[in-house]
Design a protein around this nucleic acid. Structure first.
Lengths: 190, 190
DNA sequence: CTTAGCTGTTGATAAATGTCAAAAAAATCA
DNA sequence: TGATTTTTTTGACATTTATCAACAGCTAAG
């Protein structure tokens, strides 16, 4: 039986047989990364979808003054990339980077299309993933338009305590849409 | 040949035959609405997906003090509802309301599932719709975390000038995540 | 056509958050 | 380990945005 976070995740979220799981897992290739390695650079086309076996990836954009803003954090057991670029195969406005050390698998756009043909039942979990990612983004929009910095921080602390523990404060701040100084003050105030 | 905004939209975004288009269109029922009518109330389960033939719908949430925040605006030719509730068939944290007068069609969750079985090629445009909605929400998150109120307003003016012209200022303000006073000042300042 | 209620504007002020600079603390790697 | 770099905290101050209140304009329905 295949053992990997990817295999575990497929068992948990789909009803694929062990042989189909093995096929899917075989299509994702381990991709060795260095500390903070950039996987997709702004201006590139996102050719790969990344599955996180260990650690975190961040998807971020940069403004004219060089400030960085974290669009998404991808944790162990999740997959992602610069999504708009990946589905359209156009250049990406965002970059994707490992947060510190991370272990990832990757599958190319073309290989993924082949996989859909080889394992048609894999389409359903894929669509579910997109739906869930969409729902998550709806709630993120909701908190960004309706809550202030403190409320958003408290919500993150409640819903993703591990992120706050494990990720550098500046990454958390970028994700919340505030500066690292403001986050630091929120922490010390309570 | 069926004539409706829905039929037009299907012709434009899919390769369905006229007979399939007729089937899809037949499954969506006209739903008469009053001025500012609420279609989904917070606490309800979103049982219907709404297609906008004319006007706009807004999806909004309310905070403890009764302030409203517009999560999404749905314009002519688009469809939507309280999406997280619709796909999970759980109670909704958001409400859906007509902005002024609107003409809508609707299809129930169950009828939609039947439609997928009756017209399997309809699944693909549905998935595309979700993917596009997801991409749109990614860009919305991006502007909320990386831009200030003025920048977001200018971007909206550039990308959706009609919304700014046609929708009440307080709805635009809620969509931008700012107060109506701040929006009013942004307008007069330039 | 008129009035009651929304909708939008403006002013004064307060609160939240950002910016810049510097010091302190922590993490990395040679 | 020690040196170097990166991250985090703190302070002073500036800017942005919200809040509250008053008023003006508009609009929909009688």
């Amino acid at each position: 039986m295949t053992t990997s976070v990817l295999a575990e995740t497929l068992r948990k979220h789909s009803k694929l047989s062990e042989s189909k799981i093995a096929k899917v897992v075989a299509a994702y290739k381990p991709f060795p990364t260095k500390h903070n390695q950039v996987l997709v650079r702004k201006g590139d086309i996102a050719k790969y979808l990344y599955f996180v076996e260990k650690g975190y990836l961040r998807v971020f954009v940069t403004d004219a003054s060089g400030n960085q803003f974290t669009r998404f954090l991808i944790e162990q057991g999740m997959e992602g990339t610069a999504f708009p670029s990946f589905i359209s195969q156009n250049v990406s406005s965002a970059s994707v980077q490992c947060v510190g050390k991370a272990e990832v698998l990757r599958i190319s756009y073309d290989e993924l299309q082949k996989l859909y043909r080889a394992v048609p039942e894999f389409e359903r979990p894929y669509r579910k993933i997109i739906e869930l990612a969409y729902v998550a983004s709806i709630y993120r929009i909701e908190s960004l338009i309706s809550m202030n910095a403190r409320e958003r921080y408290i919500q993150l602390l409640r819903e993703k305590p591990k992120w706050v523990q494990q990720l550098p404060a500046n990454v958390i701040a970028e994700y919340l849409g505030i500066t690292k100084e403001t986050l630091s003050r929120l922490k010390s105030a309570k």
